[in-house]
Design a binder for these strands. Sequence first.
DNA 1: TGTATTGTAATAGTTATCTATGACAATACT
DNA 2: AGTATTGTCATAGATAACTATTACAATACA
Lengths: 134, 134
Amino acid sequence: MAFTFSLSNSSGVPYYRQIVNQVIFGVANGMLKPGERLPTVRQLAVDLQVNLNTIAKAYSELEIRGVVNTQQGTGTFVSERNPELHPEEKQKEIERLCGRFLDEIAAMGLHSREVISTLTTIIQERTKKDTEGR
Amino acid sequence: MAFTFSLSNSSGVPYYRQIVNQVIFGVANGMLKPGERLPTVRQLAVDLQVNLNTIAKAYSELEIRGVVNTQQGTGTFVSERNPELHPEEKQKEIERLCGRFLDEIAAMGLHSREVISTLTTIIQERTKKDTEGR
DNA sequence: TGTATTGTAATAGTTATCTATGACAATACT
DNA sequence: AGTATTGTCATAGATAACTATTACAATACA
């Protein structure tokens, strides 16, 4: 299965950051192998219907963080040895994500346990939809 | 217990929107009674350490949506009869919130059921902290 | 050597959110 | 009547995240 990118415009998370996250977690989950080539900036820009600069910004950050190696004229590749996102860090990232979500809930005066039940319901629905889709 | 506002700067949700949401849900949850007075724009700006205009923008949107009545020189009050946020709408809003959260999770290639366990753990920790705090 | 493909960079413009500041207008209060 | 308090408005500026466009530079490849 090939690794694919996707963007959500409703989450409030900037596009370039979504791409950065997807690569980092893609590597952490073994869906992106060291040495594997990422789409060209132009191609991904077309695929995601986003500006070239947005992709370039994401790749540039990934380069700085050592997640990928880029070579002008050649392409962008997943680093051979990836220093980033040890299991603990991955867990921390998940916790940050959850924390923000709970903050939002709390700000609305909602009870988290009620929201969880909605959450699980939606998950069930989506899982069902995915299964049917095959 | 008096109704209090709080802002999170890490959620990506604009301040003015957080305030709007808190009032709407505060009303829906009965924590804000019809006729009840909201803090003045200046006071709330000081409390939340945010610019006056940001509060004014939130109140203005609430006024337009019929959630509050404002009178220059007098103050801002929760509408006597509030048309907004019937139970179904409240549920829809929760679902939107959950949907965005799940989108973020999916974008990172995380499995939602694993995240849920982290979520419940954090909730337990926070509940514990709140209980100890009393 | 030429040509296409890669990433990079510069510039300009848009939109949303927020800050800072100062002024104005309606109401309440003494 | 005068003064303080309320919400409102206008202007200017900052920042972040984009889009659009054009050009340049390094590499690959025929």
